[in-house]
Amino acid sequence: MSARSLDRRVYLRSHPLLFGLISATRPLGAVWVGRTLLVHDAEVYREILTNVPLDREAEGTTGGAALQLGGGGVLFDQAGDEHREARRSLAADLGAEGVSRVRPIWQGVIERGLTQLPGPVDLVPLAKEIAGATACALTGCATEPLVLAEATVEAASNAAGEHLPRLWGHRRVALRALRAADALSALLPDPLDAMLAVAAVNTTLAALPRAAAWCARAELWDQISPELTSELLRVTAPTPILPRVAAAGATIRLGDRRFRIRAGDRLILVARHAAEAHRDTARNERTAAQAVFGAGPHACPGANLARAQLTDFLTALVPHRPEVRKAVAARGTALPGYAKLVMAGSRV
């Protein structure tokens, strides 16, 4: 199985109905499904993130999840000057100095976790520990990295499950989401820390194993570099969709079509397609690579940290040139990923 086919299977199996619909509607660029606008086109994607007022507290959005985790007042549901100030502060924590501070921590976890190579090693629990250790360092959380990682994965997967369409079980799902949010709040009482940990852990857990599997199947071990890291993040798109809600009316154009957005309309911004992850080569490599991290004032401030961490992870694997021995896609997780990814050195 090719690298792209293996990764696409992971993507589709996480939430088959949702991602099946998204894949089927990609050629349309943008399409209404009820009062939800699915956006695939890169220009429309950027236009909405930069120029359309968005409701940061709406249910089913990242900001809505922030409210559930800690009562709001955090980066993801703020607006105006408050939002900009919080972003500046977080960008400083996740900038060059912040990366330099936490980099030795994840490098130590990687070094210990790969001592079994060239023998078989499951990269999923290792990625979870890397993510947890990084989140602990960023938030100052004193708990064990795997404990924090498990709590953030549970909170994110239950929050995602609560907002997916379903015919029954709403109350049960909502109760699980509330319990998971309470458990995470017990570890990280500060809502900003909680949301930072959720974002860091879940994107890392999605990105690292998928990129390693792609490198193995595509035989890219001789090409590992920061440039390849950016390309791997583009083609895997760890956060494939950005759910948003319009706060005010707007009109968006796509060719000769016009999309009139009303306040309260749901917007599913497909980062995977805006980044042209479905293409072997992007038409605008730099713009496409950035699309997986959002755009404008809604761009992810942790992009540099994510790239550095993935580069270090893949670089540590290079001497062993590992091959995929067993790959099991995760189901029902917040982001597409593996439940198990066993790799071993190519000579074993």
Rank of each mutant, 00 (worst) to 15 (best):
L17W: 14
H83W: 11
T203W: 10
E85T: 15
A177L: 04
A299H: 05
A42M: 03
L175S: 11
L18P: 10
G249R: 12
E82D: 15
S23F: 01
A181N: 09
L341W: 05
G60I: 00
L28C: 06
M1Y: 08
L178A: 13
E111F: 06
A303F: 04
R87Y: 08
Q116L: 11
A274Y: 05
A194G: 12
G71C: 07
L75Q: 11
P125D: 01
R258D: 07
L184Q: 02
D81T: 13
T204L: 12
N158G: 09
L196G: 03
R331A: 09
G119C: 03
L75K: 15
P297Y: 06
H83E: 10
R84E: 14
Y45P: 03
E144I: 10
L305G: 04
A334H: 14
G296Y: 13
T251Q: 10
L208A: 08
G140P: 08
A212K: 06
I261C: 05
A291I: 04
G264H: 01
G71T: 06
A211P: 11
A186M: 12
D122L: 02
A306Q: 04
D93G: 04
A330E: 07
L205R: 15
T61E: 07
S185L: 02
V198S: 03
A299Q: 13
G60L: 01
H163G: 11
F293E: 06
L228T: 03
R88Q: 12
N158Q: 14
S89N: 11
H40G: 01
P301C: 01
E150Q: 14
G29S: 00
A91V: 02
Y45L: 10
A213N: 02
H170T: 14
A330T: 08
S346L: 05
R84L: 15
A248T: 10
L37A: 06
L12G: 08
A156R: 00
A194W: 01
T236D: 14
A151W: 03
A334R: 14
A247S: 06
L341Y: 04
R262G: 12
G119D: 10
P240N: 07
S2R: 13
A250R: 07
A92S: 13
S23T: 15
R4N: 09
